[in-house]
Amino acid sequence: MTFFPLTGEPLALDLLNTRPAGMGDLIADRAGLAAWLAVEGDRLSRVAEVGEAEVAAAHAVREAAGPALEAARRGERPPAHALEALNAVLAAAPAHREVYWSALTGLVAAAHREAAPAARLAAELAEAVVDLLTDERVASVRACEADDCVLLFLPAHPRRRWCVASACGNRARVARYYARHKGERP
């Protein structure tokens, strides 16, 4: 089973975080993408069978999302090629809302996309990227401060410094401790 070091952030960040430092590409193949989609649960529509087309679609969105988000975090214009790629993915599987009745929640309006599974997955991921890029909090997205980590997160608290305090935070604290006590004898 594939381990994903950080999930539960906005979906666009979870997608970008599928390539952590030292772990390779966690969605490089069908099994990795299927495992990630399972972790993401209800945030994406179900893909019956993950094939190479779905892997390629997720990679294409991730490749466009990275430079677009990096520029948006700095308050700069994202590269034209990144925006064009996201727009092309969205145009390939346009959405319309459908309303239906749910016995649990009453009336529900949900996005519906008529497209092949790969195009639908790519469009949903691209929509999540666009939602983050246009969110006023995009400038608050941070990179983990651990030396060996490249994961991104949207801090709920302004003092948050690490993607996962129990992992990167602990490693940083232990490194500081040893640096302070280096050379001391008991």
Rank of each mutant, 00 (worst) to 15 (best):
R159H: 10
G106N: 06
G51T: 10
V150M: 00
R160M: 07
M23L: 14
F153T: 04
C163W: 00
F3S: 10
A82H: 09
S166H: 09
A143L: 13
T2M: 13
V55P: 07
V108S: 08
L104R: 14
E63F: 02
E145S: 13
H112N: 08
A53T: 09
A64V: 07
F153A: 08
E84A: 15
P10T: 01
P20Q: 03
P10S: 03
A28F: 00
V50M: 06
L11M: 07
H157A: 13
R73L: 09
M23S: 08
G66N: 03
E145A: 15
V39G: 09
V150Q: 04
A88G: 15
I27D: 00
A167Q: 13
S166Y: 03
P5T: 05
L11S: 08
E127R: 10
A35S: 12
R142P: 05
G51M: 04
A65V: 06
A82M: 12
N17G: 04
A118R: 00
P20K: 03
A146V: 01
A167T: 15
A139I: 11
P94A: 07
L44Y: 12
F153W: 01
V50W: 04
P158M: 07
P117S: 11
D131A: 15
A122P: 01
L132E: 00
A38E: 13
A31T: 11
L86N: 13
A123R: 05
E76C: 05
G66A: 14
N87P: 09
A156T: 14
N87F: 11
F4G: 04
R142T: 09
P79G: 08
P117T: 06
F3C: 04
E98H: 09
E136C: 05
I27C: 09
D42I: 11
R120A: 13
G66I: 05
A179R: 15
T7C: 11
P5D: 04
A119F: 02
L44T: 10
A88I: 00
D25L: 07
V108C: 06
A146L: 02
V61A: 08
C168K: 02
D135C: 06
L26S: 06
A57W: 04
G24S: 07
S140L: 14
Y178F: 09
L26V: 06
A175E: 02
A111W: 05
R120M: 05
V164E: 04
R46E: 07
T134N: 10
A21H: 05
V99R: 14
F3D: 08
V55S: 10
G183W: 11
R73V: 13
A91F: 06
R62P: 08
R46H: 12
C163G: 15
H157M: 04
A118S: 09
W36N: 03
V174C: 00
A146K: 03
E98K: 14
